[in-house]
Amino acid sequence: MPRKPIGVLALQGDFELHRKSLEDLGRSVLEVRAPAQLARVRGLIIPGGESTTVGKLLISSGLADAICKRSEAGTLALFGTCMGVILLAKNIQNRHKGQYSLDLLDITVERNAYGRQVDSFEADLPVRGMGLNGTPFRAVFIRAPKILATGPGVETLAEFDGSPVLIRQNNILGATFHPEITVDTGIHKAFCEMADK
């Protein structure tokens, strides 16, 4: 049976880079801008971008409700990178007026927690679990959010400076860095396996 395409939320952000990572793994990719497209995928990547922008576009496109329903029914695996983590989070520290989130991932997150763009950085991180045991992963953090707290159902797969940076809660995966910017497709591969189950 042919595998279903992986969806990439294409409202705004670096969705092209996620497309490339998935295509490098031999997966077909569907850009998702409307609920009809979401219905065709079992996994959706929420890319890096601006959370205030995409929050509004999620609502106006009707995708916000559709994503929540599918996720709660357990029929949609989700992978958020950077902005994606903010949009999935239940709690946003100092939530900006009108800042929307899907309220699915049991974490508290702080936006732009490492400073401004001049403080954006990259580092090698060891990643645990999902068949990635101990492999150093080049993690690129751009105006990155910080996960301040995680609920009981959230597993930490990598951390930096004492904070979780790669987490999993059932069929939701979240990275505060950008695995789509580097050529290592290990984390994308692990997500595809989650989506295919």
Binding site: L11, L17, G48, Q117, S120, I142, R143
Partner: peptide
């Protein structure tokens, strides 16, 4: 990378 994040905006 930051320019990549601004795409589509």
């Amino acid at each position: 990378g930051l320019a990549e994040m601004l795409k589509g905006g």
